[in-house]
Design a binder for these strands. Sequence first.
DNA 1: CACGATATGGGACGTTGTTCCGTTTTGTCA
DNA 2: TGACAAAACGGAACAACGTCCCATATCGTG
Lengths: 208, 208
Amino acid sequence: MSATERDAESGTRPKRADARRNQEALLEAAAAVFISSGVEAPVREIAAKAGVGTATIYRHFPTRADLIVAVYRHQVERLAEAAPELLVDSATPHAALSRWIDSFVDFVVTKQGLAAVLQSDDPCYDPLHSYFVDRLVPVCQQLLDAAVDAGEIVPGQAPYELMRAIGGLCAGGDHPGYDPRRLANLLVTGLRRSSDAPGTLPETWSRP
Amino acid sequence: MSATERDAESGTRPKRADARRNQEALLEAAAAVFISSGVEAPVREIAAKAGVGTATIYRHFPTRADLIVAVYRHQVERLAEAAPELLVDSATPHAALSRWIDSFVDFVVTKQGLAAVLQSDDPCYDPLHSYFVDRLVPVCQQLLDAAVDAGEIVPGQAPYELMRAIGGLCAGGDHPGYDPRRLANLLVTGLRRSSDAPGTLPETWSRP
DNA sequence: CACGATATGGGACGTTGTTCCGTTTTGTCA
DNA sequence: TGACAAAACGGAACAACGTCCCATATCGTG
């Protein structure tokens, strides 16, 4: 097929070979730099490691968010796919939810600076937010619904709010004695339908 | 008293009049700018609003943290002093804890960017961390102890960890539908000694 | 192999934090 | 009151960073 013709699949010209090579080099370099210096590492550092100019990075990944998404796409996908399996394998939906949250915490915590970036409302990170919301919120919703249907937790918890909160917990850093997994589970425990579920604590909820 | 002699109180020369004036102007300007542009507003902006040079701000407040502490000292003190009163006024220690947490959340949330800064481990913010820890952690400890003694919550929750977690929640931003107060209370609810308190959920706690 | 489209890279620009240094202000003492 | 030294000042200077421009090099095709 001639490259002057439009690519049958995408309706656009296929990328040039060097462009593909550079994109690959950038992904590899970014993955390495993200580990050593965090996801907010200077653009120049990533470009240098990949052996390309700074402009090249912007051409392939217009925003830093695009680069982050590209680097972690596989892991996020696995996280999303794990939910239905957990729902099958676990004793109760609540257990599945709890374990999925654990996985989510593990993922976020091991990516230096990712939690902070997830919280930022800098428009530069909008693509990252969109991706996380599109891919993970429905999955979390599914887990929440199952737990509600089983009568284990109170209904009405928005999955986006819950995940944002857990993201916030994870941004707490890895100080000794700070255990994001335990705290996230505290949150999920607080959701349980029990003698003192939220909404049935009028005194506690009155303003000071 | 001659200024050539040492100041009786502090053993140091009293500050010059213009220095005091500038310090006051800086505090006022910073308070205003923190509201309009957040606590991470550019140094130049604060200096400009105070009508001083950029170096002056560093002379009076070596780190940004010092400036933030100076601006919010009063409110933090009030927060610290509120705890014993809440303990007296509330029906139970847990209610007091919950209400104090509400106050803490309200304080943090209304200061644009403060939560994010509280999470940052940039050494520049160490003085801020130290101040918050010194002033608020013991107070939180007191509330937790009271609730433990009353048998309302499980023992062993470190106050620093709890406050850091809540700080993280508050950094979630003010998106519609994101309610830090509710989430913080979810956390405190999860602490309750109930049929499914943390530590009694072996299945939930097993790793995926 | 030549040519046009594509992609490149390094430097220019604007913004920020931080520090240096010549100048100004202040308080004191004669 | 007036001079002088210490204290404080302000703005320029520097470095680090994100972002964008444009002259140049490279690739794929005819």
